[in-house]
Write a protein that binds this DNA or RNA. Sequence first.
DNA 1: ACGGCACTGGGTACGCTGTTCGCAAAGAAC
DNA 2: GTTCTTTGCGAACAGCGTACCCAGTGCCGT
Lengths: 226, 226
Amino acid sequence: MTDRPRSIWLRPERTGRGPVPEHDRAGITAAAVSLADAHGLGAVSMRRIAAELGTGPASLYRYVDSRDELLELMADAVAGEVDLSRPPSGNWRADLVALAHQVRAAYRRHPWLLDLVPGRVGIGPRAVDQLEHALAALAGLDVPGPVKLEAVAMLNGIVALAVRTELQAGGSATAWSAAQGEFLGAVTSAGTHPHLAAALAGAPPAAEEDLLDRILPRMLAGLLEP
Amino acid sequence: MTDRPRSIWLRPERTGRGPVPEHDRAGITAAAVSLADAHGLGAVSMRRIAAELGTGPASLYRYVDSRDELLELMADAVAGEVDLSRPPSGNWRADLVALAHQVRAAYRRHPWLLDLVPGRVGIGPRAVDQLEHALAALAGLDVPGPVKLEAVAMLNGIVALAVRTELQAGGSATAWSAAQGEFLGAVTSAGTHPHLAAALAGAPPAAEEDLLDRILPRMLAGLLEP
DNA sequence: ACGGCACTGGGTACGCTGTTCGCAAAGAAC
DNA sequence: GTTCTTTGCGAACAGCGTACCCAGTGCCGT
């Protein structure tokens, strides 16, 4: 007696018996994603999704084992938005930077992705395809496999960091960032922490220069070149 | 009429009037931290903390405006665990790597820190001290201030990433990582995704070699050297 | 063709959460 | 001594994820 797979990705959506379902994972995921896009991750509750679909909260559990699984579906759905059709060009740095730009675009379209704790939401099939794509670009490099994985993980981390800072800089509308700015201002004007004050006072880099283009190649070089 | 400060760090704990409080922020924070250490961040609810302190849930709101503020107190409390007494040595790389080791130790003592979304929990006074310490080590470098800030942010990101992977590798006891491993195994044995399979099959680096020592200097070099 | 069974829909309900309100008691300020 | 601010906290509210149960539905084996 083999157990039912614990991973949602190995669990078939339908076994064939019984009445044909009125919904499916894709539809539920789409509803959840549009809800998150519109009102943030906090608005993604089973009840709201169900209401959006015109059904009851309990019905969703026919398609998903838990809310966390639904979050995984959402994350993988947006992972599927990046285009992986272009084969490796031979220039791995350019390939990875291009990938990073696409991932950043996805993050910008779905800022709630930043609220998903990276270690708690797992890797789905689209994310795996993305990973394979990145590793294919690195295929020519004579570097241990785990080191390549680290480099790709760092790439994702950098993209998330970049989007986070650019969102914080752009919109200080939230009460949270108001409080944050209030405190940071008090600290810098207090005179203690001179290095911090100096660093914050430094002119930001030219707007045209892209953070990804500036940082990523240097960092990848540090990680992947001997 | 000036508004009351939105940041908890600028709000005095006591104004002097009324009866003397039975608790204080430090005590509440300590209770919350020990609760999180023992049973994870999910166990940190206002009711449980209050019960631990022998009081009612509503009483906590005399000391803290919201649960999120309490999380900030917790994060800053562990940020205070790192020792910043050693002045810059003149070797900024060594200084930053040493700082990273201390931060990693703090993460290991309090793994729930990884569950705090980095962008949502703000920077408190201890974290600011830490930042100042790192910037002091970089004082001699002729590099724009914002670039230094980026580098320090990346340093923190790497430490978090490192602890996350080592915790996932160490304990696959949770149902989540079981599901994750199940899916990843299915993918690699399916034959699609050859690069991923190869990367995962690669021998892990020698256990003695420290991830921080291996990765950090190279990455910092990539970010901070011309 | 048909009986049985595996499945779906969804109302109801449980236990938990963060948070607000209101009131009694306590102590500093004038 | 009066006044005013602050504290403790029981009660309650709205919302959450999720388990349970029952009725209905359509495929499968015979």
